[in-house]
Amino acid sequence: MPTIHDYYRILELKYGSPMEEVNQAYKDLVFVWHPDRIPTERERLHEKAVVKLQQLNEARDFLKAYLQKRSRPAASQRTAQSTARSTASAANRRTQTTARTAVRTTTARTADRTAQTSTRQRATAQATATRTGGRTTTRTSTQRPTQRSRPAAAASYATKSPVPTNNRPSPPPASQPAVRTQSTRHPHLPDLSGVDLQGSDLQEKDLSGRNLSRANLTKANLKDAFLHKIDLSEANLSQANLTRANLLQANLKNANLRGANLTCADFSGSDLRGADLTGASMGSSSRVMVKLTGANLSGAIMPNGAVHP
């Protein structure tokens, strides 16, 4: 079974080359080894080109999946680090709030004790001043101090009661493992059915597996685009540039390809039933340069206006 080193070797790249270099090497080698560029009378070389193209497709698809999978753990690690920093910052703010609350409570208790001591001293002095003839008149010495000390007692009670700092739930401590916020599954491809991309420059874009049914791609530039298993059923591709586009197993049922440039495009295994190819460019007058191996052309209107059986 081929290894990752073998796939890099097939694309004539050194191990660890990024996806940009993989795509460029794939395009260069497909342009050289495409079977449609080799005369059919040279059977041995033609068969070799078919095998080479299969190896190139397999190598590019494998490396694309491998490089995408390898990039996900790095993104997850960055997310975990960011979450840990946010958690630590929240815990620090909570600690500072608790410290400030404790200082305010201690200060209030000290002021309350000072007020109670002053009240007792005033009460004692007033009782001494009212003594006459061996009798001691305490008058309201036991009541007024009590009345005057009520605000201080109330303040003491208020400071002793718990002070709510925040009704929101406390954040988890920084020691707890961070929760992964990024899914390891492939993101869902958006539905682009019916989208208007008239005249858009989509050269070398990877739209594999996308749903562009009934889309308007009139005069769009899709040169060297990767369109594996794309859904272009009933799409308008009139006068679009599909030079060397890779449309393996694409759905082009009832698509409008009038006047499109299909030179060196690969439609292997594609569904072209009912497609309109009137006036489409498929190579020179003496040679077709479009790969249609395994394609379903039932009911398709060919470039010369004839309907394929």
Rank of each mutant, 00 (worst) to 15 (best):
L217W: 05
S170N: 11
S193T: 15
A80N: 05
T136Y: 04
D61P: 00
V163F: 00
A99P: 03
A25Q: 05
E47Q: 15
T130H: 05
S76G: 04
R113V: 12
P164V: 10
S86G: 08
A84K: 08
A255C: 11
D201L: 07
N221E: 00
N296F: 06
E47F: 15
P151V: 06
L212D: 01
R210P: 03
T138K: 03
M282V: 15
P169T: 05
G133Q: 09
F31Y: 06
A129K: 03
S286E: 09
R44D: 00
K229L: 09
Y26N: 04
Q24I: 11
P172W: 02
A250K: 02
G269C: 11
S76D: 07
A75K: 15
Q54S: 14
R122T: 11
L252V: 02
Y7M: 08
R214F: 02
Q116G: 03
R148Y: 13
S161F: 01
S175R: 04
S156K: 14
H228T: 11
G269D: 04
P190I: 12
V103I: 12
G16F: 11
G259K: 10
A300T: 02
S281K: 14
R104E: 07
Q203G: 08
A88G: 01
S17E: 12
A235D: 11
K69L: 12
T243W: 10
T117W: 08
K223V: 00
S281N: 13
P39Q: 03
G134T: 07
R37S: 07
S118G: 03
A74L: 09
